[in-house]
Design a protein around this nucleic acid. Structure first.
Lengths: 261, 261
DNA sequence: AAGTTAGTTTCAAATAATGAAACTTAGTTT
DNA sequence: AAACTAAGTTTCATTATTTGAAACTAACTT
């Protein structure tokens, strides 16, 4: 859960404050922010003011609390629509979810965290919005491990340093060395398994989404519960999963159109 | 479509660059940004670098283009979940949509723009995610006008200055004076109508969501097509609409829990 | 190979950010 | 109600960061 890789000037610091507010997961008072802040009172105060002016935070005058601002919703709309894989991938992950009858997740990596950008559950197609934008650790999820495995060395290193290696379950890999071994194996095999490493009873098979040049841009996974599925059952879905990931990869390739607006 | 009310130091300028990238609605090259930028080359260059470092933009090295970064999706998740009305309002707007059998929109105001934070269409409950975060003009939509009508004077003034007053249809109110008259009438009446002012064939009835102290925090609308509905038909839904808005308002009131995490 | 454009770096000058301290306001206690 | 306390806000001299003209390099085009 550590942050702040390098403080990119004033802008970086301000964004750090934004993250801090986001972490609270509820409206927060100035004094609460101040307690956990590396910045002195007036500095933090001005950041919060600026961010509020800019609509990145919103201030509730009745309760004197700050929360994430609606401008973010607008900006993220662009991000989701024109930058994330979600848009291109949507039809494919829907098809996959329908075929397999289990939940399908689409993830990208955001500063060491796995960011779920979309998900389709065969049964209820709802709560997509509530799910998109959720984060999970990289080192103990199928999608996370597979993205890490296929990353370029340098970036991988940086990402591995950022993992918390907290033991969510008895199966969680809790140190860098163990994870590194697993990542090599995953890269050789082409898919990653989550054997209840993040949540008891939840298993998944994940594979990377690669561009033509072999860059990882995200991952897709089929997730299920140990009540219904075993790792072997998931393994049987490997061809379906790979096919979908390939299709998404090549579509993403074509997709970024040339300059003529 | 004008921006930049006051340039909040370096942070404000950087966020201005973010907006600029968002407006392109596609991956964009540095030189394209430079053309429409108020900043000189090295300055813009550093902003883009910083924002990319910070994950607010993402850079595609293959194509040398910038797009909105995934970090925004994560931050917006918090915004949507803990700051927007969407979460509290969801059950109520779903119920309303089911009852009325027409599309129900939930909006908040973001710097003069109407920001749709959620929507339920009685038939297909899908594409919510694609809709959330969309923006529309304030002066020619039901939700927009009703929010403007119930705003405090000072803020209203600022917002009215920011409207574009472009004639989307023959019914659009195209100047401040006409809008102001209408707003007074709306405030007295309690609801706003969109009589095909934004889109030909689309009408709606909108009412404000108010806190106990009488602050507007958003608006709900029932929208329909002139093929199926008349303004009179919408008027008949007024009690349903008001009831839902009241429920959302009082729930939003209660909702921001005290400090004990 | 010469020419052109896009992208990147340099560095002194200009500007904006910083934070200790003082101040104001709101809430609590005597 | 006065005295006390804590939360939020402003001031201002100091410090550090941002700024942008110009120079440079890399990547295409002729």
């Amino acid at each position: 859960m550590l942050e702040a890789p390098k403080s990119d000037g004033t802008v970086g610091k301000a964004l750090q404050v934004l993250d801090q507010v986001a972490e609270f997961r509820r409206p927060v008072r100035f004094s609460e922010l101040l307690e956990n802040s590396p910045f002195p009172k007036p500095t933090l105060y001005r950041f919060v003011q600026t961010l509020t002016n800019q609509g990145m935070l919103s201030f509730d005058p009745d309760r004197q609390t700050y929360a994430m601002g609606v401008r973010l919703v607008r900006l993220a709309h662009s991000a989701w629509r024109y930058s994330s894989l979600a848009r291109v991938a949507r039809p494919y992950i829907e098809a996959l979810a329908a075929k397999v009858g289990e939940a399908v997740h689409l993830a990208q990596l955001d500063n060491g965290h796995v960011l779920f950008v979309d998900r389709c559950k065969a049964t209820d197609q709802f709560e997509t919005l509530a799910q998109a934008g959720k984060i999970a650790p990289g080192y103990c999820t199928g999608v996370g491990k597979v993205i890490l495995a296929f990353m370029p060395q340098i970036e991988q290193n940086r990402a591995l340093d950022q993992q918390a290696y907290k033991a969510y379950t008895p199966s969680t890999l809790t140190n860098r060395a163990a994870l590194l071994t697993e990542l090599a194996q995953i890269k050789a095999d082409g898919v990653a398994y989550d054997r209840e490493e993040h949540e008891q009873g939840i298993i998944s098979i994940a594979c990377p989404i690669l561009t033509g040049q072999g860059r990882v841009v995200g991952a897709v996974s089929i997730a299920s519960s140990t009540n219904r599925y075993t790792i072997d059952d998931l393994e049987k879905q490997r061809p379906n999963l790979l096919k979908s990931a390939n299709l998404i990869g090549s579509e993403a390739e074509l997709w970024q159109v040339p300059t003529w607006s």
